[in-house]
Design a protein around this nucleic acid. Structure first.
Length: 249
DNA sequence: GGCTTTGTTTTATA
DNA sequence: GTATAAAACAAAGC
């Protein structure tokens, strides 16, 4: 493999990473929250977090290198797996199977929102006495895994809930809506291959189309489809937040 | 060259 | 120890 930017290798040290991953076979690939897990032979797992602007691309070796390609894995069948990352925020870890302590926050993630056994009842229980605003909670990976800024804004818009609402003031009907919309919107996002504003593409270079379905994210100044008032942009939980003050209460 | 961007980690405080 | 909020950090693009 070629490591052109050392800072993307988070664990272990670059030289050990290179040694340990050599000649390993990719058995299968799974996901937990925003972490991608490459299950390798000899009880190793390579964990990848793309953070912002990270991409994993399958390329032919003769394809010219992008200036933001920072790590290259040489696969068999004459293919390369390239880690491309404009902002260099992504991280790659190589750990023993099921020993995720050295892989960032992976070992502390909350439940998977789309898991079959993650019922409405379980979701409701998590709200007990939580006083943080609902946007901060949904973004908190320890509370629930996998939601980022775009999807959180869309979930709260569809649920007609103000992002600044304290979690312990939400009515049961509102939590129901958040639960249903969370699952609905994540499924839609997957169906439409994600959201491409500027640079996101999948492993084969294809853009997503979910941006066509967004109701509030980056739509400040535009009319709300539900009540007609203008979508506003503000900051909640330290993140840019788009919402309709007319119908999100 | 300061501001924006998001996801995570760190720090401070209660 | 836990919950929360704010700040810090990553670095390129405009």
């Amino acid at each position: 493999m070629d490591i052109r930017v050392n800072s993307l290798i988070a664990f272990p040290k670059v030289e050990n990473f290179k040694k340990e991953i050599k000649n390993k076979k990719i058995l299968n690939i799974t996901r937990r929250g925003k972490y991608i897990l490459f299950h390798l032979s000899q009880n190793k797992t390579m964990v990848v977090h793309l953070r912002m602007t990270g991409k994993l691309l399958i390329k032919d070796p003769e394809t010219s290198l992008d200036k933001h390609t920072h790590v290259i894995f040489h696969l068999n069948k004459d293919k390369e797996l390239r880690f491309n990352n404009i902002r260099k925020f992504g991280r790659i870890y190589l750990v023993n199977d099921n020993e995720y302590k050295n892989a960032g926050g992976l070992s502390e993630l909350g439940p998977e929102p789309l898991a079959e056994d993650f019922t409405l009842e379980k979701f409701k229980k998590k709200f007990n006495n939580r006083t943080a605003n609902i946007k901060a909670l949904l973004l908190n990976q320890k509370f629930i895994a996998g939601l980022g800024n775009i999807y959180t804004d869309e979930i709260l818009y569809r649920s007609a809930v103000d992002p600044k609402r304290k979690a312990n003031t939400l009515k049961e009907t509102e939590i129901n809506k958040i639960y249903n919309n969370m699952r609905e919107i994540l499924k839609l996002g997957i169906k439409y291959n994600g959201t491409t504003f500027s640079d996101y593409v999948n492993a084969f270079g294809e853009k997503g189309r979910f941006q066509e379905k967004l109701q509030v994210y980056q739509k400040n100044g535009e009319k709300c489809n539900r009540c007609g008032r203008k979508i506003k942009k503000t900051k909640v939980a330290g993140r840019s937040t788009y919402f309709c003050s007319g119908c999100q209460k």
